[in-house]
Structures are given as structure tokens and as C-alpha cells.
Design a protein around this nucleic acid. Structure first.
Lengths: 155, 155
DNA sequence: TGGTATAACATGGTAATTTATGGGATTCAA
DNA sequence: TTGAATCCCATAAATTACCATGTTATACCA
């Protein structure tokens, strides 16, 4: 098992009439090291789908257990939403997954999708929506370039 | 992985019609200690490509996780921008990588590139642009020579 | 020190492989 | 038995691995 798992890059893929999408090969390579499935859920903060390895959600669960006093009730509620929403998705022999109606609707995805790497996680966007979102983020980050230090203080 | 490695020197290489460039052999020697790949992304502050080992980004991912919480908006923005842009680049048996259109365009590279060592990272420049940038940096540094002490205080 | 042999490297071209994607067949369940 | 989900096959395009050559740098020897 490799030590490093990072979902990266921005990949545009088609969604066919059956709702099938190819998981980018880079992503598959990562997933295959650990299992045959990814976990997806509706993002709580944006009109997109979030995906990760089950390990990542497991780590989140552990973090909550170890820092119960740190987490507020609202954050606790958020985790409930995530675990209640999340589902495993396996990919077939050609590397495609079939996303659910619920997820596609939330992300407004019909015939094309963009996979955006986020390190331990990734997101799946409607291409037009992502284009706007990327511009927004870039503008915001450039306006006040964060350091890890200020990022922490800003919270 | 070796503990000590530094990307150094400035190396000029050609870029062929397919976007292939030889990674300088010194750089390859460093990369080979750990894997067969480097990670490249568009610099946030200059018209050039930045490259490093995946370890370096993995460390960044961990730092972001530790500095912000799972639901942080800051974390969202940072990870989208950095990991959404980065990509792995493997080199073939002759030591070449194939840079993407996106990266080449950002750095205005067409038929030649300059690799500039930066310690843990390195940059890839359009030769003319680098010539100007190097002159600019040198002039600036000479004008007001920084020390590590003042650099730290300035934060 | 000078000259030559050797190895390493950058670079051009081509073959082989992988990937994304469409379509059809098969299975399963309501 | 109808609709949906899964599996399998085909293909075009993009990516990657491989081979060949000239050039440069290095090592070796007289």
C-alpha cells in the first residue's frame, strides 16, 4: 500500500444516458490500492458531489470521538448529515460509476461532469458551475493570500 | 526516502512538438529515490510552472487538515485551488515528462524551457521570461539584502 | 597535460498500451 | 414483464513506453 493518496487535477468527463461516468484513471489507481469503492455524498456547502475513500470518513468519525468537547452541536449535526447521506459507489471493469439521481440533482449534472481534486477528497461539479466557482475562489484567495498560519487564526 | 535533497541549478532544455521535456538528470536522481513521478501546478504568483515531490504536497495536505477543521471554508478554498490544479507527471525511460497544455500556456512555454532549482521545489520558465525575472530578483535582493532574521520578523 | 575512449544525456520518431465512451446483451427485482 | 442496473465488447483517441541517434560531458591513459 502506498503511503501517499492525493486526489488531484481537474478532469472533464461525459455522463451518458444511463448516468454512467468514468472515474478518472488517476483516481481509480488510488482507490484500487485500498478497495474497489469510493464514498460519495452531497456537499454541505456547495452544489456539488463530494467523494473520498471510506478511510477518510472513518478518520472523521475517530476525530469526533476524540474531540467531542471540541465539536459544537451544530458540527455534530453536520456529521450526522454526512454519514446519513453518504453511500458507497463501486466502479465496473471499464472504470465507470453510476451516480444516483439524488446526487446528480444536487449537483445539477446532466450530460457532463468535472472531477476536481482536493487532496484527501474530491468533488464532482456541473462544468458551468465549476467554471464560475473556480473563478470565485481564485479571486478570493488572491485578494488575501492565506498562509497556513493566518488560515488558522481566521477561524 | 533520503532526508536531504535540494533541487538546484538552472537548466535549459528543449520542448518538442508534443510538449515533452527532459527532466534534468540531477532532478531525476532525486525523484527516483522515492518514485517515478513529480507533481506540477501553475504558480500562484508568477507565470511559471512549479514542481515538487508528492511528499511535499502531502505534507501541505496534512498541514491544512491540522490548521483548519473538516468543514472549514478556508480549507475548501485552498484545497480546491491547489489540488485541483496539480497533477502527477511520470517520466519515461529516457527521463522526459509531457507537460499539459494548461501548464505550458500559463508559463508561455512553446519550444524551450528553463528549470530553476528552489530547494524543495523547482520552477519551469519560458527562457526569456526567466531572464527578466532573474534580473529583477537580483536587483531587488542587492538593493536590500534580506537576512533570515528580518525575513522572520517581517511576517 | 593533451588526447582519446567511454558513458550519460537530450532529443526525434514510432510502436504499444491505456482510457474514455458508446452500444448491446444479460441479469435482477419490483 | 418492464425498467433498471450490471456486465461485456468494440473503437477511437490520447497517453505512455520503447528504440535510435547525435551531442555533450566524463573517465581514462599516454
Amino acid at each position: 500500500m502506498r503511503k501517499i493518496f492525493l486526489f488531484m487535477d481537474t478532469i472533464f468527463n461525459k455522463v451518458d444516458a444511463k448516468g454512467r461516468v468514468s472515474l478518472p484513471s488517476d483516481y481509480r489507481a488510488i482507490v484500487k490500492e485500498l478497495s474497489t469503492e469510493i464514498v460519495c455524498y452531497r456537499s454541505l456547502s456547495a452544489p456539488c458531489i463530494e467523494g473520498c475513500l471510506e478511510d477518510t470518513l472513518d478518520k472523521l468519525a475517530t476525530d469526533i470521538e476524540n474531540a467531542t468537547d471540541f465539536f459544537s452541536e451544530t458540527q455534530d449535526n453536520l456529521t450526522n448529515l454526512i454519514f446519513g447521506d453518504a453511500r458507497r459507489f463501486a466502479f465496473d471493469s471499464t472504470g465507470r460509476i453510476m451516480l444516483s439521481e439524488k446526487l446528480l440533482k444536487h449537483a445539477q449534472i446532466t450530460d457532463a461532469a468535472v472531477f476536481v481534486g482536493k487532496g484527501r477528497k474530491f468533488q464532482i461539479w456541473n462544468p458551468q458551475n465549476w467554471e464560475k466557482e473556480e473563478a470565485r475562489i481564485r479571486a478570493e484567495v488572491m485578494k488575501n493570500r492565506p498562509t497556513l498560519k493566518t488560515a488558522k487564526e481566521a477561524e
